[in-house]
Amino acid sequence: MAKEPINLYVGVWGLLVGLTILEIFMVLVEMPIILLITGVLLLAGVKAGFVALFYQHLKWDDVAISWFYLMALFFALFIVMVWTGGSAVCQVEI
């Protein structure tokens, strides 16, 4: 990166703001809750991805760091899945 991609940074910012407005818009139009939840989480994921990739410089930095991040992401998803899946005590079938 000899020259700093300042325009890119500003562009990403525009996108992030746009996605945030889209999120709020999704709430205002009152869509079915399941759709809303999926949509909102997906958009949050995309936003986080952009911040990580461009602002945290993962795109240009050592890939090994991305692996650390992905590992944490994997464990986070694992935790959420197991904890919700395991939350209700299931009874032995009678």
Partner: peptide, 24 residues
């Protein structure tokens, strides 16, 4: 640069907090 990495991480956390508490 190091500070930036931390600050952006805090930002990412907020992106999710905003989604799970405010939007759904």
């Amino acid at each position: 640069e190091a500070f930036g990495i931390y600050w952006h991480f805090v930002d990412i956390v907020w992106i999710f907090l905003f989604a799970i508490f405010y939007l759904m």
